[in-house]
């Protein structure tokens, strides 16, 4: 409850800051073309677009990949896969994005591929851990009672791993909102355009015009995903969390 109040307060502060700066008269009289409300809105929307597309790809590849390497025959692959995906994140985000331009050329696609690679790790890692950390007695009991493999996956493993997987998706999304600031460097769009303009023109207020909505976006998405995560988690698992 208290957390929610702080989050909403922070959100209002960021939005307020953006509104205040955008409405300042003198900024419009500066050397550089100032960003208008329309600019900020459309940048926010394309930012969100990139993030959503990159995340959807990361989820649709990362979740199955993380789960697959927990399966009996494929367990050997767990270390190379989780480790290999991890390598993506040890490289600085700027480098990952920069590498994409020579590989895929300038444009939105390069940006999205870079974001997807960078967002993959938390999803794969949490999907793997979510399934792998289930108490083996639970799975054994399920087998012993005559559940088929599919039934165990659907009725036991997925519901138990879901909160952990959702956390991975949330972390990945929040990170990607930040990383997407750099997408503009390889021809992407989004709020990075505003922030980086501010950086290169050394206009702190312009930087804030891009940075504040980015932070607001991260907070909002994080909050929404947390609510979804919560509604998908069995009450039995929450009681435990409350007691632990």
């Amino acid at each position: 409850m208290r957390r929610r109040v702080i989050l909403i307060g922070l959100l209002m502060l960021l939005v307020g800051l953006t509104i205040w700066i955008t409405n300042l008269e003198w900024i419009k009289e500066g050397v550089y073309k100032p960003f208008t409300w329309g600019d900020i809105m459309s940048a926010t929307i394309s930012h969100l677009e990139m993030v959503v597309i990159a995340e959807l790809i990361a989820i649709s590849i990362g979740v199955p990949l993380g789960i697959l390497v927990t399966r009996p025959g494929l367990r050997r692959l767990a270390t190379p896969v989780v480790g290999g995906v991890g390598v993506g994140q040890t490289i600085p985000s700027l480098a990952v994005i920069a590498i994409m331009a020579p590989l895929l050329g300038f444009g939105l696609n390069s940006a999205i591929v870079a974001l997807f690679i960078y967002g993959l790790l938390p999803i794969v890692r949490n999907s793997y851990a979510g399934i792998n950390n289930i108490d083996s007695a639970i799975v054994e009991a399920a087998r012993g009672m005559g559940m088929t493999r599919g039934q165990i996956a659907r009725k036991i493993e997925l519901p138990l791993a879901l909160p952990v997987i959702m956390t991975g998706i949330r972390i990945s999304t929040v990170i990607t909102v930040g990383t997407a600031e750099l997408a503009v460097l390889v021809g992407g769009k989004g709020l990075g355009l505003i922030t980086l303009t501010g950086v290169f023109s050394m206009q702190p207020l312009t930087i804030l015009q891009g940075a504040a909505p980015t932070a607001a976006l991260a907070i909002t998405l994080g909050f929404i995903l947390e609510r979804i995560e919560n509604s998908m988690t069995s009450r039995g698992l929450k009681v435990k969390a409350a007691m632990a």
């Binding site: 108490d135 007695a137 639970i138 799975v139 054994e140 009991a141 138990l160 069995s234 039995g236 698992l237």
Partner: peptide, 8 residues
């Protein structure tokens, strides 16, 4: 270890 299903 019983293995009760915690989400049920």
């Amino acid at each position: 270890d019983i293995g009760l299903f915690p989400h049920m």
